[in-house]
Design a protein around this nucleic acid. Structure first.
Lengths: 146, 146
DNA sequence: CTCTCTGCAAATAGTTTGCAGCGGC
DNA sequence: GCCGCTGCAAACTATTTGCAGAGAG
């Protein structure tokens, strides 16, 4: 998903196109990583010093609903990143320090066998965690430990 | 992990062996599923009506630290279950209604390739979600949606 | 001009912590 | 009797919601 796709999606669904929403989507596109509400608020406050958590949370929820953002959870905190443009199903390797992601084409569901009969599968999660090269070098402590 | 192993582990590490802790471990052993703090509190209050959330939370943290319990997160809530007795690495299929789990012997990490050079992998998560047969039949709404 | 978006303030849910007394060993 | 365990109350973190005014179309 890129910035204009995301903003068109908003318009198409009858939502307003605001500077804050554009800034938010652009920030996610530029950062290309998972971020918490706190992180995105901090980035956006460079443009909108008065911006509140409320708006951030409301827009995060909206964007998730529209499929503009993807979510994952570490230690009771929700982290968001721009949905991948690829239409085919895939997973991520995630830096637990900075939230940076890399796509993994492999999906373990393809080789699943022996699931209980009658069990109705509705979803799955496969994520690899660690420190990206840059963060390993910095020796920064993990902020997003799984 | 079974009840006596868990309780011996407590003793060995210098922690006290209390009725509440035993009841808690036994409840997890009996239920054999992921439970939230609220659920385990409710179960334990049959034996200890005065039991507080504080104690539940403190013991959940302690048991997690000792490897007696395993944790997973859905929708900003932590769910715990007794650690599996098997020493070899595996994953779970989890009912999002009742938290019941089933072991999956497959680990997708064995077929991983193309991870970024310099990326220091520290962990991974693979879970399959859905409704177990019993919960499908009941038509109960999901309480632990991923 | 209408209806959505936003900030403010307050509420909520899950969890953690300081303290003083109870309770294992 | 020492030191860990527990309940109480309060604090804390992440998140949600009601309301009234600002702003997009």
């Amino acid at each position: 998903m890129n910035v204009s796709e995301a903003l068109n999606l908003l318009k198409d669904k009858g939502y307003r196109y605001t500077g804050k929403r554009e800034t938010m989507v652009r920030a996610f596109a530029r950062e290309n990583r998972y971020m918490s509400a706190k992180e995105i608020l901090k980035l956006m406050q460079k443009d909108y010093p008065q911006l509140s958590f409320d708006t951030v949370y409301r827009n995060l929820s909206l964007f998730e609903e529209l499929g503009i953002l993807e979510v994952t959870e570490f230690k009771g905190e929700r982290l968001y990143s721009l949905s991948c443009p690829e239409s085919h199903h895939h997973h991520h390797i995630i830096c637990t320090v900075c939230g940076k992601t890399q796509k993994l084409d492999l999906c373990p569901m393809s080789s699943i066998f022996g699931t209980p009969p009658g069990f109705n599968i509705t979803g799955h999660k496969f994520e690899i965690y660690g420190q990206c090269e840059a963060c390993s070098n910095k020796g920064v402590p993990h902020t997003h430990q799984p």
